[in-house]
Design a protein around this nucleic acid. Structure first.
Lengths: 215, 215
DNA sequence: TCCATACTTCGATGATAAACGAAGCGTCAC
DNA sequence: GTGACGCTTCGTTTATCATCGAAGTATGGA
C-alpha cells in the first residue's frame, strides 16, 4: 500500500509531469505537443513523461488521427491532485485565474468563491445543520426557489463539505450541491464557459443571489 | 501551484518516506528510530528523510528527552495520503494484510471491514440519516451502549463518510466515529495492535457487535 | 507520390538524491 | 563523573532518471 502510493506520488512529483496534470485539472483534453509546451520540455521528454503517467493510471489517452489527446484518468485523480494542492497551497498558490476563482464547477457542483458563499450562507441562515442535514427552514427556503425536498430525496448522500482549492474553504457537494447547479443552469442563473470549468453569473443570476443574501 | 504541489508529491513519493507517512496514518507518534526500522533504512538516512518531511510541512515533531516524536502535521496531510492511497489501491494493492482489512484505525476512527459494517448498520437501522444526522432512534441506540448524545455535542462535525481504501466504501468519521473508537477501546471491545493500525476484536467486542447486529 | 506534422524510441549525458559509515552533540541512567 | 543511547551532520559512493538530439513510425494534406 505505502509503496504503491509512493509510486503514484513519485509520478506526480516531478515538475514537468505536475504541470501537465494540473493543466488537465479543467478536464479539457490536450495533445502531447500542447502538454510539452505547457511543461516547458521537448517532445521527446514529454512523451516519456506521458508514458509514465499512463502506466500509473493518472491520465488516459484518446487517439485521433495523428494526435493523441490526454486527460485525467478519473475523478479520483483530480481529487488527489486537489488534496496535494491544498497542502502546497498553504504556502504558495497565488495565481488562480479570477474567472475560475469566482465560480466554477467541481465535479457536479458549484465551487470557487460562489460555492463557498452558498455553503456558508446555507449554514449561517440555518438551512443546514453543521452536520449537513436539511432543516425545516432549509426545506422552505429551497422550495421558495423551486427546489422541492422530494426531488432531493435520492439514494445519494444529501450534502457534505468539499474542500475548495482556490478558496481553501468548504463548498457544498452531494445531491443538494448537484441539484443547485442543475437548477442554476436550467434557469440561466449561471452559464457554463464553453471550454473551461468557469461559470458565468448572469443578470438573472444576480437577482437569485441577492434574494439569497449572497454578495 | 503545480510546481509547489510537485514538491509535496516528490516528498511523499519515495518509498522510505512513504512508509513513514503511512505508518503515521493512525496518528500515533513514533520516534525517529522506530520510523527508521519501519522504513527499513539506517538512522542517518531516516534523519535526512524526516528533515525533508518537516521542511515540506508533512510531519511535525515533539522533542521529549532524547527522543523526537514525529506525527503527521495536519488532517489535510492525512487526507492527501488517503487520496493517493485510493489511486494506488484502485489498480494495485491487491494484498492488504487481512488484519488491516478487517479492522484498523483511520485517523481517529474505525476503518476496514468493521468500520464499513458499522457505517452501513447505523444507516440501515435508521440511526443516521443519509445526510449523517443523528435520529431519535440513533440517540437511543447510542445511549443504550453508553454513548450519550450530549457527549457528542462538540464543535466538531458530527459524522460524515470517509472513503475506506481497503473496502472502497464509506466508514464513519467525525465526532461520532471518534467517540465510538474511544469507547470501544475503553471498554476493551477492541484492542490496538502494538505496532500497526490494526484493531483486534476481543471476545467482549464480539458481544458488542452481536448486539449491534454486525457480523 | 511526397512532404509536413505528431509522436515515439533509442542512446548518451548530466544532475539529483538516496544510501551508509564515521563522527559529533545532547540527554538519560547509574 | 562515565557510558549508553537517540539523533543529527558530514563526506563519499552509487544509482536513478530527466533531458535532449537523432532517427524511426504513422497520419494527413497537397
Amino acid at each position: 500500500m505505502d509503496v504503491a502510493a509512493a509510486r503514484i506520488a513519485r509520478a506526480i512529483g516531478e515538475p514537468a509531469r505536475a504541470s501537465m496534470l494540473y493543466a488537465l485539472m479543467d478536464r479539457r483534453a490536450r495533445t502531447a505537443t500542447e502538454l510539452a509546451a505547457l511543461a516547458g520540455v521537448g517532445a521527446a521528454t514529454a512523451s516519456a513523461h506521458l508514458k509514465q503517467l499512463l502506466e500509473n493510471g493518472l491520465v488516459k489517452v484518446a487517439a485521433s488521427g495523428r494526435h493523441r489527446y490526454f486527460n485525467l484518468a478519473t475523478a479520483e485523480v483530480a481529487r488527489a491532485l486537489e488534496a496535494l494542492g491544498v497542502l502546497a497551497g498553504s504556502k504558495f498558490a497565488p495565481t488562480t485565474p479570477d474567472t475560475l476563482r469566482q465560480a466554477r464547477t467541481c465535479y457536479d457542483h458549484i465551487a470557487g468563491w460562489l460555492g463557498v458563499a452558498l455553503h456558508d450562507g446555507f449554514i449561517a441562515r440555518g438551512w443546514l445543520t453543521p452536520a449537513y442535514a436539511l432543516t425545516a427552514a432549509g426545506a422552505r427556503g429551497l422550495a421558495a426557489q423551486g427546489l422541492e425536498a422530494s426531488v432531493l430525496a435520492t439514494r445519494r448522500r444529501f450534502a457534505f463539505a468539499c474542500l475548495d482549492w482556490s478558496e481553501r474553504r468548504s463548498h457544498l457537494a452531494g445531491a443538494l450541491g448537484a441539484a443547485i447547479l442543475d437548477q442554476a443552469l436550467a434557469k440561466r442563473w449561471l452559464r457554463r464557459d464553453a471550454d473551461s470549468r468557469s461559470l458565468e453569473i448572469t443578470a438573472a443570476g444576480r437577482g437569485w443571489l441577492d434574494k439569497l443574501g449572497v454578495d
